[in-house]
Structures are given as structure tokens and as C-alpha cells.
Amino acid sequence: MITNEHIEQFIAQAHRVGDAGLTVCSSGNISWRVGDEVLLSGTGSWVPVLPKEKVAVCRLETGEVLNGVKPSMESGFHLGVLRERPDVNVVLHFQSPYATAVACMSEQPKDFNVTAEVPCHVGAEIPVIPYYRPGSKELAAAVIAAMKDHNSVLLRKHGQVVCGKDFDQAFERAMFFEMACRIIILSGGRYGTLSPAEIDDLETYVLGKKTP
């Protein structure tokens, strides 16, 4: 059951995203699973100054709107990712300056692992999704498919999507995604990336995923 406290927390996190420069005006959207229901920023809403009357509440399984507020036109992939990923509770679609510049390049980088934070938090592999019209079923299907086994994706000529177990994890992924793209842009393309062995070393000793 969604409470007023849930809504206030959701609004505070939306404003945090805006304050960090991850969204501008009506760009981007955010969702949060609470039990069997999902809070979503409303269609046309400005995430940086999201008001209570622009917070939609939907049923996770059916997408039924429970409070009369129309959710973001990207609700299809928000709900789809949450259905496919029981380990995920927050989905964030953002359009930060450098990561969106990379999304609009004629050729996207094949490797974003410029610092250890990228494979540790954003993902050693970041799928690049072809351009589909924002809000389209094709875009939703592509994002859902890519995020079944990835936590971050780049949308060509559009933006980015990350997910997380909570607000902090999704926010961290978005911020390090933007940091990596800032390095890529500011280096003028003259950047190095971690080798597979260096990433494997991180997985062993930092993330504890493998036995030394």
C-alpha cells in the first residue's frame, strides 16, 4: 500500500536526480517498486521539481493506474524491467550532458571501462540500443531485453537507463555512467580502458565475485 511517506520519499529522490544534473526540465523519468505497486513520474512532468500531483501509482503486473495520474510515456520499459528483475526496485531514465553527447555520436564507444568504477558499478558491458521513438513499444521491448542481464544501457540519440536495488544504487550507476562519458568526451577520444585481466582482478578482489 503506497503511503504519503512513500510519495514524499519518491519526490525527494526525483529532486536529487535533478539537482545532480541528470535530467533537465521534462527529460527523463523514474520509477520505484513498493510491494506490488509502482510509483512513476507522471507524463510530461519535470523530474527536478516533481510535485505530488504528478506522481502516478500503478499496479506492477497490469500497469493499471490507481490514482488517476497518467504515468510517463516510458512506463512500458519501467514496468517491464521491474517485472523481469525481482532484484531491482528502482529504474531511472536520464539524459545527462556527457552521456547524452556520447549517445548522439555517430559511433558509440565499444568500451566504457575508463576507470574501475565503471565495471564495478555501471557494468563492464553497456549495451547500446538503436534509436526507437521515445515511448514506443519497440523501445520498451529493447530496453527490457537488454536489462534482463545488464544494469545500464545507452539509447542512441536519446539517453540512458539504469536500474538498482534502491535509489542509491541507481543514482550511483547514473553518476558513474556520466563520469565515464565525461572522460571519453574530454579526452578527445584519446583514452585508455581497463583490460579484461584488470576487470577480472576487480571482480576477484573488490567485488568478491571470484575466488582468488
Rank of each mutant, 00 (worst) to 15 (best):
H150D: 09
G28V: 07
A180I: 09
P97A: 12
I30L: 14
L139I: 05
P109S: 09
S45T: 06
V24F: 11
E198W: 08
E172P: 11
K137S: 11
R133W: 13
I129K: 00
V47Q: 09
Q160F: 15
P51S: 08
T43V: 15
F171L: 12
A124W: 09
L22P: 12
S195I: 07
I11C: 03
W32N: 09
L155D: 01
S75C: 13
V81S: 06
P109Q: 02
P48N: 06
S41F: 01
A14E: 01
D201Q: 10
I30T: 12
V17G: 07
G68L: 04
D36E: 12
A170V: 09
G28S: 08
G159S: 10
C58Y: 03
V122M: 04
S31I: 02
Q169K: 14
F176T: 06
K210L: 15
P212L: 11
H150C: 12
P130S: 04
A170R: 00
C163H: 03
E84D: 05
S45D: 06
I199V: 10
L39D: 04
S45P: 03
D36C: 11
A170P: 01
L207P: 08
D166Y: 02
P130Y: 01
I129A: 03
G42E: 05
I144F: 04
A180N: 07
E125Q: 12
R16N: 15
F10L: 01
A142P: 03
E74Y: 05
F167T: 02
K52L: 14
L155C: 04
E178Y: 04
C104G: 13
V122P: 05
P97E: 15
A20N: 14
A140Y: 07
V118Q: 06
V143G: 05
A146Y: 02
I184G: 00
A197S: 15
V153D: 04
T211F: 13
R59C: 13
A145M: 14
A116M: 08
V24H: 15
Q160D: 13
K52F: 02
H121M: 12
W46I: 13
A170H: 03
V128H: 07
C58K: 10
V55M: 00
G192K: 14
K209I: 12
R33P: 06
V47H: 08
V90G: 06
G76R: 12
V24A: 14
K210N: 15
L207R: 09
E8N: 05
V153H: 02
E84N: 10
H150V: 14
G192S: 13
T100I: 08
C58L: 11
L22T: 10
N151T: 15
A141H: 07
S152W: 01
K137I: 05
R85M: 07
T100P: 02
P130K: 09
D19V: 15
S152K: 01
D200E: 12
F10I: 01
E198G: 08
V153E: 00
D87G: 10
E61K: 14
S75I: 06
S152Q: 01
